[in-house]
Amino acid sequence: MPNSKIAIYALTSQGVNLARRLASKLGGTIYASRRLEAENVTPFDSLRDLVAATFNAFDSHIFVAAAGITVRCIAPHLQSKETDPAVICLDQGGLFAVSLLSGHLGGANELAADAARAVGGQAVITTATDSAGVLSVDMLAKSKGLGIGNIERVKDVNMALLEGQPVQLYDPEDWLGLAWHSNFDSVAGADDWDSSRPGIWVSWHSDCPEGALSLHPRVLHLGIGCRRDVSVYEILDHVGDVFGKRGFAMESIASVGSVEAKRNEAGLLEAAFEFGVSPVFYSTAQLTAIDVPTPSDKVQAHMGVPSVAEASALLAAHGGKLIVTKEKTDTVTLAIARSRRA
């Protein structure tokens, strides 16, 4: 599927032609050196200055340029493998598509393969697990929709897999689908965990033992009601307090829901952004149709529905169970539902 969040950079006329072929298959915005006077592209004077502006504005970057030029342009902007965008480069003949940055989590390895197919070239993938044909736990977690709580532990698990060492696994609901995999030793709980060995702990709670890679299924759906002009900090503080008391993992937040009347509430929109989800807003008819444990006459009088927080959480969870009935501050009401395992 074409991706409008791809930036494609070309430095030569031949490179522009290749960029057009890539964009026709992958989508994206083409940037070309102004001196080329190419049509239907965005011209630039300095590639280094351009990348400073575009690096964090796009999910992926394709440079039709030498690897050295690409590395020098992106180097000042690198932050972490968890947040950096995908970066690949191609020679202007389209012979090789090289994955340079964020091969796994950012999707550069997949992008390099897609780009190579688009122009009839060869993808060049140098990440160790891919080169060895070994399972990469960060890629697996991404494909299963799991959040990673401590990205620095990925290398410990991947290294153990590369060396053929067994890896501990706590995943009672088998989110990773590895229950019968020969490279993993399933454990029943914390009492069986050996902190001296690498391992993976899959849970929607913040209960990961020391030294383990923590992965979190996104199963917690927040229903939020709030006063007008509430600040993002009031929402974040209340959610953080409720999660902290119950030991829930913030990485397991799957959605934020509220009533349609709150669609333009800035604090709520900012909070959803901080949680890394897109907010969902429900009509009064949708909310009224949901049976909740603690309806409110006050909410009915002000919003026209008996419940905002609990009903929104239950709607978002699609048949899941309410695990936290509404908890209130002076300005924020929060309820949490857990979705069922698909």
Results as ranks from 00 to 15, higher is better:
Phe63Ser: 00
Leu101Gln: 09
Pro279Ser: 03
Tyr282Asp: 11
Ser312Arg: 13
Val292Lys: 13
Ser99Asp: 00
Ser255Arg: 04
Leu47Glu: 09
Pro295Met: 14
Gly304Met: 12
His181Ile: 04
Gly276Lys: 01
Thr129Trp: 12
Ile253Asn: 03
Asn183Met: 04
Thr54Phe: 07
Thr29Tyr: 06
Ser186Cys: 15
Leu236Pro: 00
Val256Lys: 13
Pro293Glu: 08
Ala123Glu: 13
Asp171Trp: 02
Ser258Lys: 06
Gly27Arg: 10
Gln79Asp: 07
Val256Ser: 02
Asp330His: 09
Ala116Gln: 02
Leu315Phe: 04
Gly177Thr: 10
Thr284Met: 07
Ala289Tyr: 07
Gly177Leu: 00
Met250Ser: 11
Glu210Trp: 05
Ile323Pro: 12
Val157Thr: 08
Glu210Val: 10
Gly320Asp: 04
Ser102Phe: 11
Arg263Lys: 13
Leu140Trp: 03
Lys155Trp: 01
Glu310Cys: 09
Leu101Asn: 05
Ser186Tyr: 09
Asp291Ala: 14
Asn158Lys: 05
Val305Gln: 01
Gly247Tyr: 10
Lys5Cys: 00
Ala52Gly: 14
Thr70Ile: 09
Gly149Thr: 14
Thr331Asp: 03
Lys25Phe: 02
Gly320Met: 10
Ser102His: 04
Ile62Lys: 11
Glu39Ser: 10
Ala113Asn: 01
Asp59Ala: 14
Pro295Asn: 11
Val64Gln: 07
Ala313Cys: 05
Met139Pro: 01
Asp91Arg: 03
Glu163Asn: 14
Gly267Tyr: 09
Thr54Pro: 05
Ala86Arg: 10
Asn17Asp: 14
Lys81Asn: 02
Leu18Pro: 00
Leu268Trp: 00
Asn109Met: 07
Asp192Cys: 12
His221Trp: 03
Ala116Lys: 07
His216Ile: 02
Glu37Met: 08
Leu146Phe: 12
Ile88Lys: 05
Pro209Ile: 13
Ala53Met: 09
Phe273Val: 13
Gly93His: 09
Val324Ala: 15
Ser60Pro: 00
Ser182Asn: 14
Ala285Arg: 11
Ala112Trp: 06
Glu37Asn: 12
His318Gly: 13
His181Gly: 00
Arg34Met: 07
His221Ser: 13
Val71Asp: 08
Ile6Tyr: 06
Gly133Val: 13
Glu251Phe: 06
Ala115Met: 13
Ala188Phe: 07
His104Trp: 06
Leu78Pro: 01
Tyr31Leu: 11
Gln122His: 14
Gly276Gln: 00
Asp291Met: 10
Asn183Phe: 10
Ser80Thr: 15
Ala7Gln: 01
Gly68Phe: 13
Ala66Glu: 08
Thr331Asn: 08
Cys89Asn: 15
Gly149Asn: 04
Ala19Gln: 02
Ser136Leu: 04
Ile151Gln: 05
Gln122Ala: 06
Ala254Glu: 02
Val98Met: 07
Ser296Lys: 00
Val219Ser: 06
Phe58Lys: 08
Ala65Ser: 12
Val219Glu: 03
Asp45Gly: 15
Val292Pro: 03
Leu101Pro: 06
His61Trp: 09
Pro2Val: 07
Gly189Pro: 03
Ile148Phe: 04
Trp175Ser: 14
Leu161Ser: 11
Trp180Glu: 06
Ser102Pro: 01
Ile62Thr: 02
Gly103Trp: 02
Phe281Ser: 09
Ile253Trp: 03
Gly106Val: 07
Arg338Lys: 15
Leu135Val: 13
Lys144Arg: 15
Phe281Cys: 12
Leu101Ala: 08
Leu162Met: 14
Ile125Gln: 04
Ile74Gly: 00
